[in-house]
Design a protein around this nucleic acid. Structure first.
Lengths: 338, 338
DNA sequence: CTGAAAGCGCTTACAG
DNA sequence: CTGAAAGCGCTTACAG
């Protein structure tokens, strides 16, 4: 494996010059640069990560991470992904600060401002899709603080990348699964998180588009639980009381625990229940037989991947010239695969 | 973050001595060692990976990897995992040599011997469960060449670790899925890979144990395809001709493509088909609607994880004093989640 | 049993 | 525009 030293010798220049050329740093004679590049190519030069990493000990990068509050346990797993990757990258001079805030624009704006005051070099965020948040983020981006959106995107944010689910597809997959796991007339109740949240409404669209035209499926009612377990309990209780014909439920987002409690209290374990993610309460409910299947979206990967992208970008902004989309794999789980 | 240099200063010794203590190298005065360890603990010392990695450039490790021949495309993905991790670890002085051989004892023994002649420092293998292979591996292990089993284990091999599926569990999960995705009387045909292969028979056991006692399920016939697509085509063709009442098939291993061809030719797309893994032909068959669902076992992870373990072991044999089992996640896929 | 020194590959502040 | 030198943290061959 070729090293900078070898290239320098062959080219008859110093190692510093080779470094400048290879990393597009300022002011190297064009002729010299060409020669160096040619030799690097010839020797199939690949930078040695250990060397780079060790030298990078001097730069300290701080990344601000803003996700939802503890109320939504799904983010516990995303955060594990952040922390694992951060642990790995500590040795490369990277530190993170994680803020979990309620899902509203004031809380997010406060968190973003706090990050900026701490001098972060980049922000990874699950953005609340509100004009005030979007414009603040775009202001920061314009000012040179890169932003990556994770788990949920906001179209109008000029983020470097989005790492998360393809929600439309996951909605379709949920419907397909419901189709495969049932026969006869199906009366479906849908529980949305928050119709203002882009990703939840996309799941809803995917779900209904997939069932559209299958006669045996009827969507009876659609309700929002705002990702809240108590609210979810209420909604599902009244849904099932008002519509005892419901024999299938689709939870597009969080609040699964509260909803399942209602199912259990009404003794309706006959209902086909499809959910998303495998937070611990969902796992328990699956083992009890209350949830038929759940579709997961690699939460740890989402955390790890977005942080890695940010780190790589900070070291070489060339890699993300255009916004890129990194979609999680969709993994179906049933109680036997937990 | 504390460094060796800082510890050395506090302890009033040289960096070399600190290194010796921290890495359990030979001959350091007990008193000195105690002092160094105490200070290291006090400062919460964690070795810097970049520094370690750079210094490790001088040791070159060579790992031999032996998996199945190209006839079984599943291993293409395992190999991607090996190659990704190897690319990462190249910078830490690690190289791999991959051998894909037919699944019999002579081929494996030849491959193992070739690895030894090349001077490998460790072997990662999907072992053929034969006495001759087992004893050869155990001889190497006794002679100081560590072995890790991947994807399929052989109980009597004294390997450091096994990385792969819990086959019994995946068999059970397949049966559970079949149960969920069907109603009424089900007549099941089972296609085994090779009953001499431990993992295939374990899947079979898991599958039948899960269906055991469910009256609507009847296992009509069980056959081996030896992971061969042509053989698989023949078997499934005659199965379906002889037992037209079969309305569900379970493929425990490879040969899915050949089997599905038979289903297609006989125009039996009504059959519920459960398979394992998502090799490209399986993906195609799913999109055509011939396969209902497939249960995956993270092939890339298996490759990456086993190689990482081997690398870590070579750097610090303490981490694997007892054989450890690393099981892959089971992920169910349907055509909508591909 | 211990220390001083060189080296792994890359980066950077400084001098010119 | 370029080079020489020091440094990131860890390891090791050598000398004593």
């Amino acid at each position: 494996m070729a090293t900078i030293k070898q290239i320098a010798e062959k080219a008859g220049v110093s190692r510093g010059t080779v470094d400048r050329v290879l990393n597009n740093r300022s002011g190297v004679n064009e002729e010299t640069a060409r020669k160096v590049l040619e030799i690097a190519k010839l020797l199939n030069y690949k930078p040695n990560k250990a060397g780079k990493a060790l030298a990078a000990q001097k730069n300290k990068f701080l990344i601000g991470i803003i996700v939802f509050s503890r109320k939504n346990p799904y983010f516990d797993d995303v955060i594990k992904g952040f922390e694992e990757k951060a642990e790995e990258l500590t040795f490369y001079g990277l530190e993170i600060m994680i803020k979990r805030v309620p899902y509203n624009h004031e809380a997010q704006i406060d968190a973003i401002n706090a990050c900026v005051e701490s001098g972060v070099n980049g922000i990874i965020i699950t953005p609340y899709n509100d004009e005030s948040v979007i414009s603040l983020l775009n202001k920061l981006i314009a000012g040179g603080i890169p932003v990556i959106t994770v788990n949920s995107d906001a179209e109008k944010v000029n983020s470097l990348a989005y790492v998360g689910s393809d929600y439309y597809k996951s909605g379709r997959a949920s419907a397909a699964l419901m189709d495969m796991m049932s026969t006869g007339s199906m009366n479906v109740g849908i529980i949305l998180g928050d119709s203002n949240i882009l990703c939840h409404s996309q799941r809803y669209l995917g779900f209904t588009s997939r069932l559209n035209g299958i006669n045996r499926f009827n969507i009876i009612t659609v309700n929002e639980n705002f990702d809240d377990d108590l609210k979810s309990f209420e909604i599902v209780s009244s849904m099932l009381r008002e519509h005892p014909e419901i024999n299938a439920l689709y939870f597009t987002a969080a609040g699964v625990y509260g909803g399942c409690k209602a199912i259990k209290e009404l003794d309706r374990s006959d209902i086909l229940v499809i959910t998303h993610d495998d937070v611990s309460t969902t796992v328990d409910m699956m083992k009890e037989g209350l949830i038929t299947a759940t579709i997961c979206q690699q939460p740890r990967w989402q955390g790890a991947k977005s942080l890695e992208l940010m780190y790589n970008y900070l070291n070489d902004p060339e890699i993300l010239k255009f916004k890129k989309y990194f979609y999680a794999e969709l993994n179906i789980k049933i109680s036997e695969t937990l």
